[in-house]
């Protein structure tokens, strides 16, 4: 299997994984832990791809599964794309400056991504909707980010295996 084929296979696995995790989260999490807010586990897969794979793969992981998130939420598709794009830009800017592949780094970026996603979706709702989101659920977002930070080390090894760092990242320079 060539490097490209391997890379594509991993990307497809990641897309399938993110859809499966999103579906699990909408049902499994609520049956077991409601009303504790879910830590947006699907975003961990997205963050892992954005961190450890190429820019194009990062964009694919935004656009393709978004159609499934749209099916699983009342949130307009544009808001989801906007929120994920904000996360993508944040990760890109951060990765260009600080990049330390480790559990702690991943947990921090994942938790920060949750906050960025929620804040940007809230802002775009306030700016564009006639009936926007009522009020920022700051404590809920913080709880989600905290939970994400705590539990991400559990599944980090799986995500690390599914996302072997891109050549450019291994060499230390981001394209």
């Amino acid at each position: 299997m060539t490097e490209k084929e391997r890379s594509n296979t991993f990307l497809i696995i990641n897309i399938l994984l993110v859809i499966l995790v999103a579906c699990v989260e909408t049902s499994f999490w609520y049956w077991l832990f409601a009303p504790v807010p879910s830590p947006m586990l699907w975003l961990s897969v997205v963050v892992a791809v954005m961190l450890y794979r190429t820019r194009i793969e990062g964009l694919i992981i935004i656009y393709v599964p978004s159609l499934f998130y749209f099916a699983l939420s009342a949130e307009p598709l544009g808001f989801i794309l906007f929120g994920l794009t904000a996360v993508y830009i944040f990760i890109k800017l951060l990765k260009d400056r600080i990049f330390i592949p480790s559990k702690m780094y991943f947990a921090t970026v994942y938790a920060a991504s949750i906050l960025i996603f929620q804040i940007f979706v809230f802002l775009i709702s306030i700016l564009t909707e006639i009936k926007p989101h009522a009020s920022p659920q700051v404590w809920k977002w913080i709880a989600q980010a905290f939970l994400a930070f705590i539990i991400s080390p559990i599944f980090y090894p799986i995500l690390e295996k599914l996302n072997p760092p891109d050549e450019s990242i291994r060499e230390g320079g981001m394209s």
Binding site: E25, T26, L72, S73, E75
Partner: peptide
Amino acid sequence: VIGHDLLGQHTTLF
């Protein structure tokens, strides 16, 4: 009820 809203900003059920 088989599921809840994925993103949490809205409260929908499936």
